[in-house]
């Protein structure tokens, strides 16, 4: 635990702030708030009611999480230009916060509840996974002490959060389209896939607690599994319960999906460019085919394919956009899980 070492030299006021941070950040309140926000968001999308109250709960959740984030920033004692995005825990926390801020902007513009629901579910999943990941305040290596690096990571995190939100939209969209197609094999296949996820819901956390060395990896895998499971459950609810499983609803989801894909593509591209600029300063090279760089490029290419195919795809444009967005979100998950923990490279946490 490096927290003690970091705080040993901290002034008294920061040590007092640490206890406030631990009380807020360690509590279940952010999780509960986003859980309520997600439930209200689902009710709002299905019934088209509770607009203002859902928005208020969502805003309160964001403010709470932002408070935790800023407290961690202050307590860590890092420079003002170094936000807490230095390890897996901080990156996950930041992705939930930044993703929700982007969703709030979109919600204020569209007012259809789709981005709000997707980001609330995303935040719940991320905050659940955060509870398993090591969140101690370790001192960061000097090579990360750069404003360029901070901007690079923050913008990439926005891109990844948005890619995660497209997963939560694309999956129910595909689910609904397949569900609506005639014949039982389509319905059976989507249910079978969803059931196949269930062992992972218990298996990953169990493995995390059984083997502390694999805790971070298992927690991230668990987060990804929960993400798919929740998306699937949302999809099931969407196609079975909702009276609004109509073309207009699907069109709304498709519209949200494409705008999120644009934001994700732009953010990951800009973040990668800033990463190249930082790489040139820090390592003496702007590109090195490191696994993280390669998978960022794969995510960008997949999102660019989604955006380029869309205008010529005719009636199937929503379906094709959803498929490529899902693939891009998959590439993003590979970047967060496989590259961070299982592959050796400059960005490896292993």
């Amino acid at each position: 635990m490096n927290t003690l070492a970091v705080l040993a030299q901290a002034p008294l006021w920061r040590q007092e702030l640490q206890s406030v941070y631990e009380a807020l950040g360690g509590s279940v309140w952010p999780l509960v708030l986003f859980g309520v926000s997600a439930a209200m968001g689902l009710a709002r999308v299905v019934s088209n009611r509770l607009k203002r109250s859902t928005l208020c709960v969502f805003a309160a959740s964001i403010l709470f999480l932002a408070g935790v984030f800023v407290l961690r920033w202050i307590v860590s004692g890092r420079a003002w230009y170094l936000p807490p995005v230095m390890n897996q825990y901080e990156a996950m926390l930041a992705s939930a916060l930044l993703g929700c801020i982007v969703a709030m902007v979109l919600e204020l513009r569209w007012r259809n509840g789709v981005a709000l629901l997707a980001s609330s579910l995303y935040a719940v999943m991320i905050l659940l996974a955060c509870r398993l990941v090591d969140g101690s305040l370790a001192d960061h290596p000097g090579i990360l002490d750069s404003p360029l690096m901070a901007m690079h990571v923050a913008i990439i995190i926005i891109g990844h959060a948005v890619a995660g939100m497209t997963l939560l939209l694309s999956y129910p969209y595909l689910f609904a389209v397949i569900w609506r197609s005639p014949g039982w094999p389509a319905k059976a296949s989507v249910i079978a896939f969803q059931v196949a996820v269930i062992p992972g819901l218990i298996g990953w956390p169990a493995l995390a607690f059984a083997n502390p060395e694999l805790r971070d990896v298992c927690a991230t895998f668990a987060g990804a599994t929960y993400l798919i499971a929740v998306a699937g459950m949302g999809a099931l609810a969407f196609v079975t319960v909702s009276p609004r499983t109509d073309s207009a609803m699907l069109a709304g989801m498709d519209r949200a999906n494409i705008i999120l894909a644009r934001i994700g593509c732009f953010a990951i591209t800009l973040g990668t460019i800033l990463g190249a600029a930082w790489g040139d300063v820090a390592w003496g090279r702007w590109w090195g085919w490191d696994p993280k760089e390669t998978w960022a490029l794969i995510t960008i290419v997949l999102l660019l394919i989604a955006l380029h195919v869309r205008p010529i795809a005719g009636e199937r444009r929503g379906l094709i956009t959803a498929v490529f967005c899902l693939l891009a979100a998959g590439a993003m998950l590979v970047n967060w899980i496989v590259v961070n923990y299982l592959l050796a490279g400059l960005h490896s946490y292993a």
Binding site: N2, A5, V6, A8, Q9, A138, D139, H140, P141, G142, I143, D145
Partner: peptide
Amino acid sequence: YLPSSDGKTAKDY
């Protein structure tokens, strides 16, 4: 060589 406050990481070379 400048170590970090906990002595575990390098702040600067």
